[in-house]
Nucleic acid binder design. Structure first.
Length: 392
RNA sequence: GGGGAGAUACCCAAGUGGCCAAAGGGGGCAGACUGUAAAUCUGUUGGCGAAUGCCUUCGAAGGUUCGAAUCCUUCUCUCCCCA
């Protein structure tokens, strides 16, 4: 029943019958996934795809990770309405330093081949590129959704962006991919890989598309640049809190895509939800499951306790960072800025005026308050920022 | 090569001489409520200042004017049409 494991949570498999064929041959298949070295953190959205790759590993297949160091210099136009900024080699290298340990939180290191695509793309000569490009037409390249949308909206498209799919497709040729994984936004690129393989007389890869996970805002896809992501290396506390902040409408999708719960358990939860279980409790379960995957059950339990303590009971968290001001007597606005709780004095004033600043549970009303620090005092800003102000 | 349109804050977008630190929406932040960092509602959203205020910001640089996002000149970039 390998096929069921593989199909679970996928959106589309093109073509499905070729996948059956490949699986039937009972060879070790090479499953390719391109990763973008521009984002130094892996988040739950990318983890959806990585976890699928892990499914393949568990069935004995080989993961082939392509670090798009060369293609990052082009910038994938997928899902973008703007030309991406180009990265320097140094930036890419730095990002990748952080990357590997994160990846192996999900993948098995043994069954993972790690390749940089500059290895082959960097060697292509102008002549090679012209030969490759000659195999395809402009119409083929601009039919892709994101490019054609930008064309329609009269937005600029740089010439090199049109070559993106060509290079990513060539990766598939270079590593002889049997299967390529990606989000639904990668459809065009994945299919273009097949075209390249056809040109080179290889067996065509099967494209498997995973759903895109919406971020914490519930609207846009999870992405570092939108700031709506949960990083898999974040602290249990942060991770837990962020998961509690997803909109109720996304609960089931998150349960399916980010936890190890099986379909029976998810169906149970679905029924509970319909019968009126408090969605908050289901989110607590979700957060617990996810934190357990990337940290531990114990940490997850602690994070939950902490969450209930701070947000439901409105008590103090167990650990509060501390700050010791230089002066004994300090203007409250200056204190907020100096301690990093507010970026500017105007912002600090605004927070006070709106009742967002508390000293030992008492709301600060006066922006001119001169605070005499005689004993340690707890400064609270908004719902979740705490700081212990210490006597000098 | 010729003709036309455009560049506004984190993003989208209005504004064509003073009432513009700049409408509206999104996002962010805060408050209320709650079931929670959900939903909804309200407020707020350049910096400095206790404050009348001052400084920076409407692609860039100059200019006109008592006064410029707005008018003029040059430049940079983008899009469209023709060749």
């Amino acid at each position: 029943m390998d096929i069921e494991v593989i199909k679970r949570n996928t959106v589309e498999i093109i073509p499905e019958d070729e996948l059956f064929e490949k699986l039937k041959r009972s060879e070790k298949l090479r499953v390719k996934l391109g990763i973008d070295p521009t984002a130094p953190d892996i988040h739950l959205g990318l983890a959806v795809v990585l976890r699928k790759l892990r499914d393949f590993q568990d069935l004995g297949h080989q993961a082939v990770l392509i670090v798009g160091d060369f293609t990052a210099k082009i910038g994938d136009p997928s899902g973008r309405n703007k030309t991406r900024p180009q990265l320097t080699d140094a930036e890419i290298k730095e990002n990748m330093e952080n990357y590997k340990p994160q990846i192996f939180k999900i993948l098995k290191e043994k069954q993972t081949e790690f390749r940089y695509n500059s290895e082959w793309l960097g060697k292509l000569s102008s002549e090679d590129i012209i030969k490759l490009a000659a195999k395809f037409t402009v119409a083929q390249v601009i039919e892709r959704d994101d490019i054609s949308k930008r064309l329609k909206k009269n937005e600029p498209i740089a010439l090199h962006e049109l070559l993106y799919a060509l290079f990513q497709g060539y990766d598939s040729v270079a590593v002889r991919a049997d299967i390529e994984l990606g989000g639904t936004d990668q459809k065009f690129n994945l299919l273009f890989g097949r075209e390249l393989q056809r040109v080179f007389g290889q067996e065509l890869q099967v494209a498997i598309m995973m759903p895109l996970l919406e971020g914490l805002d519930g609207v846009r896809k999870m992405s570092k640049s939108y700031g709506n992501y949960v990083g898999i290396t974040e602290s249990p506390k942060e991770m837990f809190g962020k998961l509690m902040s997803i909109p109720d409408t996304l609960i089931l999708k998150y349960l399916e895509l980010t936890t190890n719960l099986n379909e029976i358990e998810i169906n149970n939860i679905k029924r509970n939800l319909k019968e009126g279980t408090n969605p908050r409790d289901i989110k607590l379960r979700l957060a617990r499951e996810v934190v357990s995957i990337y940290h531990s059950q114990e940490e997850a339990r602690k994070a939950e306790e902490e969450f209930l303590q701070v947000f439901s009971k409105k008590e103090l968290p167990t650990e509060i960072p501390s700050y010791t001001p230089q002066e004994k007597k300090i203007w409250i606005v200056k204190l907020l800025v100096d301690s990093g709780l507010a970026p500017t004095r105007n912002e600090a004033r605004r927070l006070i005026e709106q009742g967002g600043v508390k000293l030992d549970r008492i709301t600060v009303k006066d922006t001119n308050l001169e605070l005499e620090i005689e004993k340690d005092i707890i400064l609270k800003v908004g719902k979740r920022k705490f700081l212990k102000i210490k006597v000098r």
